[in-house]
Design a protein around this nucleic acid. Structure first.
Lengths: 226, 226
DNA sequence: CAATCGACTTAACGGCGTTAAGTTAACGGC
DNA sequence: GCCGTTAACTTAACGCCGTTAAGTCGATTG
C-alpha cells in the first residue's frame, strides 16, 4: 500500500490529505501560492502523485472550491429560517448571509469569480445554484405575500444579486482594508454595515418613499431640459 | 541607437511598441497570454530588453491598464453631457456608460478587478477615481434638484456602484455568454438590457411606488411572526 | 509462482518571470 | 582623435511552475 512514513494510511486517505493541504494553501497563500509541489510537500508525497487522484491542477482547485461551498447552501438556509416565509426580512437575510459567507470564505469566491481563467468553473454546478434558487424562492414568497412588488422574479433576483455581489467584489478588490471608499461615509464602514445601510434605498428606491411620484415627475422635467 | 531591423526607430519608440504589443496581447489572450517573451517577440527584441523600460511585468501591465482607462473618464463625461444637470437620467447615464465601457474594454477590467493578485493596483489612481467622482457629482446634483432623495451621497454612490459593478462582474464571470441566468428572464437578456430593466426597481424600490408605506408595514408584520 | 496492477517515484520538458554578465554603438570632455 | 561613460540592448542562466514519461515496488490474483 501507499504510506511509508505515515503509518495509519488507508484507502482515500491521501486524496483527502491532498484536498486538505490544497484547501489550507488556498486560504493561506491564494491561488498563486497553491502549487502542485507545495501541496505535495505538505502531504509528504511527490508532486506527480497528485495526478493519480486529480487530472490536473484545475480539477484539484475545482474540487477544493466545491467542498468549500458545501456549507454555503446550509449557511443561507439557516439565515432564512430566522425569518418568516414571505417576509422582506427573509430576502434581506439571504443577501446578508451571502455577503457574510463570502467574506469569511473569500478564498473560494476569489477563485470562483476570478476573471482571468479562460474556462470558468461552472458557477451553476454549486449546490442550490450558488444560492440563486434559495433567493428566488424567498423573492417569490415575498411577492405572493405582498411584502414585495410583483415583477419578474428573475429580474428581482438579478437586481438583488447584482447589488450584493457588487458590494462583495468591491470589498474583495479593495482587500477589505485600505479602501478609501469605505471611509468616505462616516457610519457604515464595513461591507456588512454598508449592506444594511442600503436597506432604505432598496426598499423605497432612490426617489424616496414620500417624494416618489413628485420625484419621478421632477426627473422627467429635468431630463427634457437639455 | 537601438533598432537594427526596424530602421525608423526613435527614442521612446521601443517603449511605445512594447506597450502596444502588451495591450494587444492582453486583449487577445488575456493576462495569461501576456508573457514577457511573447511581448518581446512581437516587438522584435529580447524579453529582458523590456526590463529597461519597465521594472517588471506588474508595472508593464499596470501601465497598459492605465492607458486603457485614459478614455474612461472622457467616455463617462460624454454620456453625462447628454442629460441635464441634476436629472436622474444623468445618474443613470453614468452607470450605463460604466457598464458599456467595461464590456467593450473588459480586458482592462479583468485585470483591475482581478481577485488573485496580492497587491492590487490602486483602483483610485485611475483618472476621476475610476468614475467615482463623476458619479458622486451627478448624485449630489440630483439631490440638490430634488430628483433624488437626500441621503449621504457616498452611501448613494456605493449603492449605485455596487449594483452596476455587480451586474458587470456577473456578466464577465459568465463570459458574456452561456450564462443561464441571462436567459432566465425573457425580456432583458444582455447586461445592458438588464441594467435598463433595473430602472423601476432602483427608482421606486422593491416595495413599489404605490404600495410603499403599506408594503413596509406588511413586511414589518411578517418579520415579527416567527 | 508468475503476471498484473495500483500507488507511487525520479527525471525531464517546455514555459514562466527575473537576474547577471557581456556587447555594442553613441556621446561628451579633453 | 581618442577615451571613459552610458544607454540600449544581447545571451545565458536560475528557480519556479504545470505536466508527461518511464520506472519501481509491494500487494493481489489467477
Amino acid at each position: 500500500m501507499a504510506g511509508r512514513e505515515n503509518a495509519g494510511s488507508r484507502s482515500g486517505d491521501v486524496e483527502r490529505a491532498i484536498l486538505e493541504a490544497a484547501r489550507d494553501l488556498l486560504a493561506e497563500k491564494g491561488l498563486q501560492g497553491l502549487s502542485m509541489r507545495t501541496v505535495a510537500e505538505r502531504v509528504g508525497v511527490s508532486a506527480t502523485a497528485i495526478y493519480h487522484y486529480f487530472e490536473n491542477k484545475e480539477e484539484l482547485v475545482e474540487r477544493v472550491v466545491q467542498q468549500g461551498f458545501l456549507r454555503f447552501g446550509e449557511y443561507i438556509e439557516q439565515a432564512m429560517r430566522a425569518h418568516s416565509r414571505g417576509s422582506l426580512e427573509r430576502v434581506r437575510a439571504v443577501g446578508e448571509a451571502y455577503l457574510q459567507f463570502a467574506l469569511e470564505n473569500h478564498a473560494y469566491f476569489r477563485v470562483l469569480f476570478n476573471l482571468q481563467r479562460p474556462h470558468p468553473h461552472a458557477i451553476e454546478d454549486l449546490p442550490e445554484g450558488g444560492g440563486y434558487g434559495l433567493l428566488r424562492q424567498a423573492v417569490v414568497d415575498a411577492m405572493d405575500s405582498g411584502a414585495m412588488r410583483t415583477v419578474d422574479p428573475d429580474l428581482m433576483v438579478m437586481y438583488l444579486w447584482s447589488l450584493t455581489h457588487g458590494l462583495l467584489m468591491i470589498s474583495l478588490a479593495c482587500q477589505l482594508e485600505h479602501c478609501p471608499e469605505f471611509r468616505a461615509t462616516p457610519e457604515a464602514r464595513t461591507p456588512l454595515e454598508m449592506f444594511h445601510a442600503f436597506g432604505p434605498l432598496v426598499r423605497e428606491g432612490v426617489l424616496g418613499a414620500a417624494a416618489a411620484t413628485a420625484g419621478a415627475a421632477a426627473s422627467d422635467r429635468a431630463a427634457g431640459e437639455e
